[in-house]
Computed example of a mutant assay.
Amino acid sequence: MKSSSLVELALSAQGCTQKELALQLRVSPAQISKWKKGEHISFEMSKKLSELAGLGDLDPDVVLLAGSKEDAKKWVQLIHYLADLSEDSAETGYHTAPLIEDLGDDNCSLFWNTFRVLQEMGITIPRPFPKELEACIADDDEDEVIWDNEIASLIYDMFKSLTNVYGFYAAFVSDLVYDEELDLIDTPAWELDSELLSLAASKLDLDESKIPGFSRFKNKVKSEVAKMVTYLKERAFRAGIPLRAELMDLVFDSHDELGRAAEAHSLGFDQNRLHPDIYMNELLTGMRVIHQVLPALIKKLGIEDEFELDTSELRLG
């Protein structure tokens, strides 16, 4: 999307036509049209368009969503502030990487992902930037303003949920995703960490009468993440790598439950515990072997007609 956003913002900032913009960049008008449709753009041309649009370090997609460069800067400040607030109050024992990384990056991934998730939930980014929130980004003592503003409080709740979801992911899942033995690059499981903010948002208890698209969003996210986790579990099982938790809890448990599990792990309460699924799989494998071998043994002994299983001996007293 960035190439089309860059072209649109450059055209607006320069007040020129596509043909005039093409002359400035020494490319064909057809190339401008291709970029406007989303075709990949080189770093050099991206930089030139960004300079013409006067973006500085701002993400062009965020600027378009916010409505102006000034409002984009305010959203960046607010999201940075809410990320810091959420991370400072996290209790899992793990740092929430998405909240503390890339904040100074030109890509502004956290800001873009936050806007993307809000849009997928069916929420429109307010324009212009809510005036009452300007005090929040200017003064650290204005926390109460957040709780009175629906979108700011929602973003904060998303980030708080993310600290718990990411804590569980860091404790039980990430080592598997990046395990070289599993070689998960370009597999469904490799995309798991990029869906964690969406997953965190899906775990919120929201008023669906106010956000009609939330139910559809929640079901879609859970379905997609469940497929990723299932794939990861299958690969781990085939490789004989034990699990220390039921990974599907990431999908179906509440964010509070995930946070408690992560905290327990960070404190070492379950360091020697393997998840029962591992033992159950071993038992099932053994049972399948017995199921295949036993009939052959009975036939070999010639007792297939007289053998009868006494199930009463299998019942617990």
Rank of each mutant, 00 (worst) to 15 (best):
L6S: 08
L6H: 10
V7S: 12
E8R: 15
L9W: 00
Q14S: 12
Q14Y: 04
G15Q: 04
C16T: 15
E20D: 02
E20Y: 01
Q24Y: 08
Q24L: 14
P29A: 11
W35K: 06
G38M: 04
S42P: 00
S46I: 07
K48A: 13
L49A: 06
S50W: 07
A53F: 00
A66H: 06
G67R: 13
G67A: 12
S68K: 07
K69C: 06
D71T: 07
K74G: 03
H80K: 05
L82V: 01
E87T: 13
D88N: 09
S89T: 14
A90P: 08
G93C: 08
Y94L: 05
Y94C: 14
A97R: 12
E101Q: 15
D102E: 12
G104D: 10
N107S: 15
S109E: 01
S109A: 05
L110F: 12
T114W: 07
E120M: 03
G122I: 12
I125C: 01
P126E: 01
P128L: 00
K131P: 00
E134S: 09
D141S: 12
E142T: 07
E144D: 03
V145F: 09
N149I: 07
N149Q: 14
A152L: 10
S153V: 04
L154S: 07
L154R: 07
I155V: 15
A171M: 06
F172K: 01
F172R: 06
S174K: 15
D175P: 10
D179W: 09
P188Q: 08
A189I: 09
W190D: 15
W190A: 11
E191I: 02
D193L: 02
D193S: 13
E195P: 00
A201R: 01
S202T: 02
D205K: 04
L206A: 08
E208Q: 04
I211L: 10
S215Q: 10
R216M: 00
R216F: 06
V221S: 01
S223P: 02
V225W: 09
V229A: 10
L232G: 11
E234Q: 14
P242D: 11
E246R: 14
S254V: 02
A262P: 14
G268R: 12
Q271Y: 12
D277T: 13
T285N: 05
V289S: 10
V289A: 11
L297S: 03
K300M: 03
G302C: 13
G302M: 04
E304L: 05
F307A: 12
